[in-house]
Write a protein that binds this DNA or RNA. Structure first.
Lengths: 139, 139
DNA sequence: CCCGGATCGTTTGCATGCAAATTATCCTGC
DNA sequence: GCAGGATAATTTGCATGCAAACGATCCGGG
């Protein structure tokens, strides 16, 4: 039997995932240059859920505490979000969309849907369904 | 009909891809703490192809010129690779594995295969085949 | 009531990643 | 043979990402 000694980088799931992510990022940046993918994720989650503590926003957008802090800082610098102290818990920072943030989100929403569609464009409907189901098992 | 106004972050392909990538990274770091995913990709490609120019190595590992430079610098600092001037093209830098680099690669190879297996563990054989085929179309 | 564990936010350090500009070199067509 | 375009490497600037350590605060149990 073969020893399994060989290792073809291009066949490894991690490498393929990285290339797919790169292609998606390129599509995103082309369609929505105003914010990055992670910044948009934060805006989308705030639009979906309303104001959230910084930490919870990070958990809901899959960013650790250090990463979400940077994203929040940069979004605040653009006046797309604002942060206020939580009166009930002095550790917490409440993050909410500004008017400008909500306006931007709604303005680019069609583009955001188009990004998902364009990313999945090479696939048939069945393949899209299969991909979604499979990736959910891996997330 | 619905306007399609809603946007659920967790359903977007880009977000799901990011979470899957995060899980894979955690599995990798746990199994091979010596080098990062990108560093290992570079080692693997050099092991697979032999010495390569820095730029070509970058293309084959899906890193742009700036990124591969950093990776090469750090691998060289660990004496896992070495760089030499190309006598035929003075622009080029030839990158090759050192003895230590090849030894490390071969030592962690079983772990690398295990990483792919562990990442795909939640899937059936059919799902793995489907995923591989679908991601290739998206890469 | 208070103490020890948990949570929240911050900071530092390191490693990707991409964009854009720069320099050096190569190569091709005229 | 040389001028202009392409390629290789570098550098800078910005934005993730994760790990680890830290101080402040909260909370539950004794």
């Amino acid at each position: 039997m073969a020893t399994g000694k060989s290792y073809i980088l291009d066949d490894q799931i991690g490498f393929v995932l990285r290339r797919v992510t790169q292609r998606h990022l390129a599509i995103f940046t082309d369609a929505i240059p105003e914010v990055t993918t992670t910044q948009f994720a934060a805006l989308a989650k705030l639009a979906e859920m309303g104001p959230l503590s910084q930490n919870l926003l990070g958990r809901l957008t899959a960013m650790d505490a250090a990463t979400i802090k940077g994203v929040v800082d940069r979004l605040r610098k653009q006046d797309l979000i604002e942060t206020t102290a939580d009166p009930d818990d002095r550790r917490r920072l409440t993050v909410s969309l500004t008017e400008a943030g909500r306006a931007l989100f709604e303005r680019v929403l069609p583009a955001a849907h188009a990004i998902t569609a364009r990313t999945l464009a090479p696939l048939s409907d069945e393949e899209r369904q299969a991909l979604q189901a499979i990736l959910l098992k891996l997330a």
